[in-house]
């Protein structure tokens, strides 16, 4: 079982600030982590390897420091890691990102399953996984919460939908995105950390992938971020405190004043 896990390095907190001038995230002074949703993808990949043998390759497109996320992936059980990094990749939207990842997957060659997180913490689009499958022309299942069985080149998975679960079968190779319900990611091990420190992580650039410059990064992006902002809070909530009876009285008073009851 050859598993590829696509993961992204993101700022380690949901409270990042936005630079009002450039409309981009202020990343200075903030610790970077593996996108939390991707940690479930990695864990599931490592578990598949433990169940069926084979290997797990972690792949990330990002600036040179994204190597840190890949080292962490090795400490958590990935056998190999590849960083896709080139100035030309910068500013990629989901389409250009998926194109770059797909090119790297094709360069790697043989694989059985590609696992991505359901979305990133910073971009929040959830599009890279499905776009990747389109470009690779393989099946895709989103929001997988359980891998039930893999046998005879087929996999059966449960996927979370609003009303409950769907059970889906797909031939391998397949791309899936996973939800956090799928597992509890392990912590790194001491031996894993030692291994990750000396792991050789190749960096693949535009020439390595043999891709067309105009299809990657900002140049290859169909969408453009014009503005990022916090929604204005238009009305304030109010919390009543004290005895329950008093709270109910206060609430009724307010509702009456507002002419709602």
């Amino acid at each position: 079982m050859n598993v590829i896990v696509c993961l992204k390095q993101v700022p380690g907190t949901a409270q990042v600030k936005i630079d009002p001038e450039t409309n981009t995230l202020i990343r200075e002074g903030i610790e970077n982590v593996i996108n939390p949703f991707d940690t479930y993808a990695l864990e599931e990949g490592v578990r598949l390897k433990e169940r069926f043998g084979g290997k797990v390759t972690a792949m990330s497109m990002g600036p040179p420091q994204a190597e840190g996320a890949l080292r962490e992936a090795v400490s958590l059980g990935a056998d190999e890691a590849i960083l896709l990094s080139d100035k030309a990749f910068a500013g990629a939207d989901t389409w250009a990102t998926a194109y770059t990842l797909a090119s790297a997957v094709n360069k790697l060659g043989q694989y059985d399953i590609i696992i991505c997180g359901r979305q990133t913490l910073d971009g929040d689009t959830g599009q890279v996984g499905p776009e990747l499958s389109e470009m690779l022309e393989v099946p895709f299942v989103a929001y997988v919460s359980r891998i039930e069985e893999i046998a005879d080149g087929q996999m059966r998975v449960q996927r979370m939908v609003e009303e409950g679960h769907e059970v889906i079968e797909a031939p391998l190779p397949t791309v899936i995105t996973v939800v956090k319900e799928i597992n509890v990611p392990r912590l790194p091990s001491l031996r894993g950390i030692v291994k990750s420190k000396s792991a050789v992580i190749p960096v693949w650039t535009v020439p390595d992938l043999g891709v067309d410059q105009s299809r990657v990064g900002l140049a290859g992006s169909f969408t453009k971020v014009i503005k990022v902002f916090f929604p204005q809070r238009v009305c304030q909530g109010e919390i009543f405190q004290g005895e329950l009876g008093n709270q109910v009285e206060c609430l009724m008073g307010k509702l009456k004043d507002a002419g709602l009851v």
Partner: peptide, 17 residues
């Protein structure tokens, strides 16, 4: 155990750290 904490005090020849 998964984090290798029991390996800490065991010699390397016996799968420790």
């Amino acid at each position: 155990a998964d984090a290798d904490m029991f390996r800490v005090f065991v010699p390397e020849e016996y799968e420790g750290l």
